[in-house]
Structures are given as structure tokens and as C-alpha cells.
Nucleic acid binder design. Structure first.
Length: 777
DNA sequence: GCTCAGGGCATTTTT
DNA sequence: TGCCCTGAGC
């Protein structure tokens, strides 16, 4: 392991405060790092400095929130020190690090080593089952709300036992008409344990339980971790906070880095108090404030300051920039959100020409993922290349979850969620009723579904007919086969074998639809990822564990493919503000600045929520290096209805000196037309945008006399047409709203049926309602 | 057991 | 508008 400690030129690479923060190793410290102040640089150098001062890599615990942040930090440590030293550091996400510890110490908390991790959808599906089996009224007990509530409890270290002890909570639940919440919580808690599974919050909760109940184990880790570093401390929740406090009690060497002004995850349990109260928690701490912003122009930094200073709860600091003054922030009003998208597209083309920016240096930020649609359409029309972050992540796709469920079940047969997911995929004619029967027996005997089919004869009350039972046994044998091979092959070999053996491959290959082809590609991508994983592992350690179970451990805590495709290199980035945290671009377009999306006044009930919205706005502004354009729409279609939002108050909170607020009189013609149609028409029920660019993904039989006539006429202007050339749609004046493409015409008993591909379900709904209306008259 | 039409319902998100 | 869930009917 070679190192470059002595080569690092701290004096040249760091400013005075950064240097002091890096070199302080005597006790706890808080580094308040304003936006763009070189936070990651300080952390990286601090790790290098610790190593230089004789700290063993494995005694340094460095915690981040995202895999991306951990990955970046590792890279930078390696670059700085010229080795692969980061492999020896205890560096990773909170969840990743504690998952590793919990597997190691599984026995102490009554688990076995092969702990499955349930993602949000697994958890919610289990909760749903439990709501049904506890006979709870699903009008009040909604799975996603219950999941959120349970999550909040766990993040605050409220176990079901503690919950039951609290009278206040019971009264609160009764008022909210969910008096049995605690029963549900307890059942869920027990079920997870029985299935040897943990959800994300459990990883932190059980780590707390482990350290609470096994002092010797706590002791071991307190001794092991001589120095603890925490990134994004403003986003830690109670559970994480206690873990840090506990682990640091012996050595008292903890360095936390964060910016209270960028705390935007309160809604999922982050406690800004953790950073605000650091003083009290670690009385003998040292405070460093990184206040020089190296990222943005003075205008942008000052504008952001003028907004955030309105928050009451914050650590006082003076973020400043010595860069150029830069251009004013442009604020533009659009008539509708579609026009807003067009304005952005134009703006992108302009900035490329006049500021000579590459696409990669431009980002469009919005509050909610749904807002990307209009933008995509406008960018597509103007041929601007773009990429979207967020939405459905790779690992939450059906096909990927299905494949991984086979792996999970092989590793941990108690995993009922995996069992249910694949027992009938590919189809084995094992349906709801059979699973319910299995579930009943499993519940009665407090065992897993797998254990029931392992020895079905042991359960005489299991009333399943011979044919179905036989299919279940074939499934059992299949999984047993998979289990037997688990350590024989590498991860990618195993996945290849698995998709053949289970029939997944055949299932996807036989179906020629576009979706199936996409699915197949994704499965291939998964196998590729496994291959990459093997190569990565073997590069550093020739005898590393590259089996599928090792891969599963690695992959369970991943949410995204962090290997950015090369073709995505020079593209405009579209994403939510939340996911933009930590990133920066030359030109940022911030869209949807309506009160409705950035609620600032009465619509937020507490001061705390208002302040979090303001911090979100602050984060958005400070992503920009040179140019910032803010847009809002004065009217938008929401769930098919027209609404008139007002601009968010936050816009006017920016000091006027930094802003150019141009009222846009140049309303886009098409938008205006649609707008007028909408106003002059009594109909409130038609598609405002016409046809969509999205790939065809819905097939529907359209049964309506009127509509059948269209495909029947296979001649238009004397030219013969095949069904797929005929388009049905709703015409209003000169525009067609909603299009469906007829692909086949069938003769049935009472008339003709047209098979129509719809581009989306909204169009389908629209045309069907139109067809009904037409048929009635 | 499977399919498909119709009803209900919508933040932000990492792990 | 779009998507997920459900229950009726095959």
C-alpha cells in the first residue's frame, strides 16, 4: 500500500479554515460547510491527514447518506493518496455499514446471518397482508400511511413495546381512528423477524438495539472506530444520531460536516436539531465555518443569502463569494406549464449559443417528478438531448425484482415476500386462493410459506388439490435446485443459469411486445452489473467472494445504477431539487415556482415546514454556478383540470437587486389556442395536449359501433389502408385530441371490434367517454 | 386462475 | 392525466 501523504500540499490546496478543520484531531468538531465551500475536499483531506497521523484505515468510520457520495469520496481519497486505500476504510452509507455489522452480530439480536432487506414495496405489501389478516378497516389503515408511521416510530427508536407503553400515543391513534395501529406495528415487527428480514429503518433500529443490549459488542466497536466522520449531518435522524453518540463515547473523536441551510429531508425524519444542538451534545467541541463559496457568482450567492436569512432556526454564518458579480437571476412567467417548458427549451438553446455552454452544464430542476413530462416534450421537439434522474429506479423494476426474488428465496427461504412474488412467476397456475391457504397454515404454525411447502404432508389442514399441490412441489424442487448451486458459480453465471432454469428467459423471449423486450434488456443489464461487480471485487482481492449471495448483499442497498452510460455524457439533466443536492451546473433552470408547488404562506401549517420549503428553494438556487433562470406558470392543468396558481412568495423574497423579473407578453400561440378552446368549450374533459410522444404501451379493445365504422372503411381517398394506418381520435375544431392507432379489426357476434393501441390511459379514457357520448346520441 | 374495464387516487426520497 | 387496484366475468 503506497501512499502520498507527504506529497499533499495542504497549504496550497486548502484555505485557512479548511486547513484548520482538517488538522483538528483532538476532539469532537462540527464543520458547518456552506453551499459550494469545498466540503468534500475537506473530508477527503481529513481522511488523508488521519492516515498520515497513524490512524489505521479500518479504525476510521466515515458515514454518508448515499452510495453516490460514498463512491465519490472513495474515488477522491484514492486519487489523493494514489492507491486503493479506500477499500480498507470503514466508509459507506449508514445503512450499508450497519447492515455489515448486523450480519456479523446477527445472533445477538436473534437473527441469522442471511438477513434479507425489504425495500419500501416489500414492506408495504407485507403491511397490506397484515391489515387484511388483522381485519382492520382499510379505509383508515392505509398501507402507505401505516408504513410511514412505522418508519417514523423506528427512526425515533419507538419499538412496538415502547409504543404500547405510551398512553398519549394510544389516545392519539384513537383520535386518528387507528386505535389498533400498535397491533399492526407489532405484527409487522414480529413478521419481519420471523422472516429474517429487515426494512431500511430496521437496519438502524436493530443496530441501536444491538448496542443497547450487548455492551460487550458496543465495546468492541467503540474500540474499533477510533475516529468517526459524518457527512450531511443535518440530514441525520434520531436513530442515526444515537448511533453516532454511542459509538463515539469512548474516544470522543467525531467530526460531523453539514449545512443546516440545506436540511431538506425533515419529511422523512431528518432532525435539523441534530446539527443545531451539536454544541450541547458535544460540549467540548470545536466549530469550523466554511463560508467562502467557490462555486457561484456573487449575485447567486447573495440572492440565496437574501432568502435564507428569513429563516429563524439556523446557525449564523456569512457565506460569500469572491467570484465575478455575474448576471442577474432571470424570472419568467409562462401562461401554462407547457409554455413554461417551451420557454426553458428556448432558454437552453440561447445559453448554448451566447454563453457557449455544453448540454452537460445545464440542469432543469423541479419539485416533483411528474413535472418532467412537459419538459421532455418541449426538449424533444427542439432536439435538445436530455437525461432524467429519478422516477422508477432500476432495482425497483418488476423484472429485476422477480429475478432477485429467486436469489433472495434461495439465500433466505423464510422470505415470504420473495416467495409470493415468484411462486407464480413465470405462471405456474398457482393463484391467490392457493397462496391464501398456504398463508393461513403458515400463520397458524408461525412458520414461513416455504416451510409449509417444504413438508406439505405435515399439515393435514392444508386443503389443496392434488394438481395444485404437485405444481407447488415442482416449484419447491426448482428452488431447492437453485439453492444447491448457489456457491458453485459466480454471480453472473448464477443469474444466467437462474433465468434459464426458472423459465424467465423463455417467458420474456416468447413475448414479442415492446415491454418484454425492454424487460429482457434490463435483465441482461442486471447480469452485466453482476459481471462488473465480480471484476471490481477480483481486481483488489483475487480470492474475493463473488458468489450470488455476496452480490445480493451488495445490491440490496443499491437504488440506482451509478455507472452513468457514456451516451448520457453530454446531455441536459432533468431532476428534482432533492436529488440535485450536492451537484452543480453552470446554468440552472428552476421551473414550477408556483405557490402550489412551493407552498410558502398559509398552506404550510407550521413554521418548521415553511422553513424547510425555504431551504429547498435555497438548495435549488445554490446549484447554479453562473446563470439561474426561474420560471412559473400562471395556470396549469392538474389532473385534467385548469387551475390558476399564484407565484410562490419565495420568488419575491429574493432581494430585487439580484433579479430581472421579466413579464412575458409573448404568449406562445399554441398554448394560447388550447387555452381559448378550453375557455370557450363547455367540455371539461378533454386532453389539453393532443397526442403524446411516449412509446405505445397500452392495448385496448374499443367496443363501439361508431368507432368500428372507421376501421371498416379501409379506403381513404381511394387508397387502401391497413388497420394500423388508421388513426382514431377526437377532433375539436382543427386539432386532434387524443389519438389511438387501430391495429386490428375483429368480427364478433354483435358487431365489430377494433383493437386500438393507445399511447396512454388518459387518451383511452377520453376516447371511450367520447365514444359513449356519440353512441348515446 | 386470468383478463380487462372502471374507480380512486395523487409531494419531495435515500437506504 | 396516469397508474394501480379490484372485482366481475370468462
Amino acid at each position: 500500500m503506497k501512499n502520498n501523504f507527504d506529497v499533499i500540499d495542504f497549504l496550497n490546496d486548502l484555505n485557512q479554515t479548511q486547513k484548520e478543520a482538517v488538522e483538528y484531531l483532538d476532539g469532537p468538531s462540527l464543520i458547518v460547510a456552506g453551499a459550494g465551500s469545498g466540503k468534500t475536499r475537506v473530508l477527503t483531506y481529513k481522511i488523508a491527514y488521519l492516515l498520515k497521523n497513524g490512524y489505521n484505515p479500518s479504525s476510521i468510520l466515515a458515514l454518508t447518506f448515499t452510495n453516490k457520495a460514498a463512491e465519490e469520496m472513495k474515488q477522491r481519497v484514492n486519487t489523493l493518496l494514489g492507491s486503493n486505500i479506500s477499500n480498507y476504510l470503514e466508509m459507506g452509507t449508514f445503512h450499508g455499514i450497519f447492515y455489515k455489522i448486523l450480519r456479523q452480530e446477527a445472533e445477538a439480536i436473534g437473527f441469522n446471518k442471511n438477513i434479507t432487506i425489504y425495500d419500501t414495496s416489500d414492506s408495504q405489501s407485507l403491511i397490506k397482508t397484515l391489515i387484511a389478516s388483522l381485519n382492520l378497516n382499510d379505509e383508515y389503515y392505509k398501507p402507505n400511511l401505516m408504513y410511514g408511521r412505522i418508519s417514523r416510530c423506528k427512526n425515533n427508536l419507538l419499538t412496538p413495546h415502547k409504543y404500547r407503553m405510551s398512553n398519549d400515543l394510544q389516545i392519539e391513534d384513537s383520535k386518528a381512528r387507528i386505535p389498533k395501529f400498535v397491533d399492526l406495528y407489532e405484527a409487522y415487527f414480529k413478521q419481519c423477524k420471523m422472516q429474517n428480514a429487515m426494512d431500511f429503518d430496521d437496519l438502524l433500529l436493530y443496530a441501536n438495539i444491538l448496542f443497547r443490549d450487548s455492551p460487550d459488542i458496543l465495546d468492541k466497536y467503540m474500540n474499533k472506530f477510533k475516529f468517526i466522520l459524518v457527512d450531511e449531518y443535518q440530514d441525520t435522524n434520531m436513530s442515526q444520531y444515537i448511533l453516532i453518540k454511542k459509538l463515539s463515547t469512548l474516544n470522543n473523536k467525531v467530526c460531523v460536516v453539514g449545512d443546516d441551510a440545506q436540511s431538506i429531508y425533515g419529511f422523512r425524519g431528518a432532525r435539523i436539531e441534530n446539527i443545531l444542538n451539536f454544541k450541547k451534545d458535544f460540549p467540548k467541541h470545536k466549530l469550523f465555518k466554511l463560508e467562502q463559496n467557490y462555486r457561484s457568482t456573487q449575485t447567486i450567492v447573495n440572492a440565496a443569502n437574501s432568502v435564507i436569512k428569513k429563516n429563524e432556526k439556523q446557525i449564523s454564518k456569512n457565506v460569500f463569494s469572491e467570484n465575478n458579480t455575474g448576471s442577474l437571476i432571470q424570472i419568467q412567467k409562462a401562461l401554462t406549464d407547457s409554455e413554461e417548458a417551451i420557454i426553458v427549451a428556448k432558454g437552453i438553446n440561447e445559453t448554448i449559443l451566447s454563453n457557449h455552454l455544453p448540454y452537460a452544464e445545464i440542469a432543469v430542476l423541479y419539485r416533483t417528478n411528474a413535472q418532467s413530462r412537459n419538459l421532455e416534450e418541449a426538449l424533444r421537439k427542439t432536439n435538445i438531448p436530455y437525461k432524467i434522474y429519478g422516477g422508477l429506479s432500476f432495482y425497483s423494476r418488476q423484472e429485476i425484482k422477480n429475478v432477485l426474488a429467486y436469489v433472495k428465496l434461495s439465500v433466505n427461504p423464510s422470505d415470504n415476500e420473495a416467495f409470493k412474488r415468484i411462486v407464480n412467476y413465470p405462471s405456474r397456475k398457482i393463484g391467490k386462493v392457493t397462496i391464501e391457504k398456504l398463508q393461513d397454515v403458515a400463520t397458524q404454525n408461525n412458520i414461513s410459506l416455504w416451510e409449509v411447502i417444504e413438508t406439505p404432508n405435515a399439515f393435514p389442514q392444508l386443503n389443496i388439490n392434488a394438481g395444485t399441490l404437485n405444481r407447488l412441489l415442482m416449484f419447491r424442487d426448482l428452488v431447492n435446485n437453485l439453492k444447491a448451486n448457489i456457491s458453485e458459480q459466480t454471480a453472473s453465471e448464477y443469474l444466467n443459469y437462474l433465468i434459464q432454469e426458472t423459465g424467465i428467459y423463455a417467458d420474456l423471449k416468447n413475448d414479442k411486445s415492446v415491454e418484454s423486450m425492454n424487460r429482457m434488456e434490463n435483465v441482461d443489464e442486471l447480469i452485466n452489473a453482476a459481471k462488473n461487480f465480480e471484476e471490481e471485487m477480483l481486481k483488489d482481492e483475487p480470492d474475493a467472494d463473488v458468489s450470488i449471495s455476496s452480490y445480493l448483499e451488495n445490491v440490496s442497498l443499491l437504488t440506482d445504477m451509478d455507472n452513468e452510460a457514456e451516451e448520457d455524457f453530454n446531455k441536459v439533466t432533468l431532476m428534482t431539487i432533492h436529488s440535485a443536492k450536492g451537484l452543480e451546473y453552470d446554468h440552472v433552470f428552476l421551473v414550477g415556482l408556483e405557490e402550489e408547488l412551493f407552498p410558502s404562506a398559509m398552506s404550510r401549517d407550521t413554521q418548521a415546514e415553511l422553513e424547510e420549503e425555504r431551504r429547498l428553494f435555497y438548495v435549488a438556487i445554490t446549484r447554479a454556478r453562473k446563470f439561474l433562470t426561474i420560471t412559473y406558470a400562471s395556470s396549469r392543468f392538474r389532473f385534467g383540470n385548469l387551475i390558476y396558481p399564484s407565484p410562490s412568495r419565495f420568488i419575491s423574497e429574493i432581494d430585487r437587486n439580484f433579479v430581472n423579473w421579466a413579464e412575458n407578453e409573448n404568449e406562445h400561440k399554441a398554448t394560447k389556442n388550447i387555452f381559448q378552446h378550453y375557455r370557450s368549450s363547455n367540455q371539461t374533459d378533454y386532453n389539453s395536449k393532443g397526442s403524446k410522444y411516449v412509446p405505445i404501451n397500452k392495448t385496448t379493445r374499443l367496443k363501439s359501433d361508431r368507432f368500428v365504422q372507421k376501421p371498416e372503411k379501409t379506403e381513404i381517398d381511394g387508397e387502401r389502408l391497413t388497420p394500423d394506418q388508421i388513426v382514431v381520435g377526437l377532433k375539436i375544431r382543427h386539432e386532434t385530441f387524443g389519438k389511438g392507432k387501430v391495429v386490428a379489426v375483429e368480427q364478433t357476434g354483435n358487431g365489430k371490434t377494433a383493437m386500438v393501441h393507445f399511447e396512454n390511459s388518459g387518451t383511452k379514457k377520453l376516447l371511450l367517454s367520447f365514444a359513449k357520448l356519440y353512441a348515446e346520441n
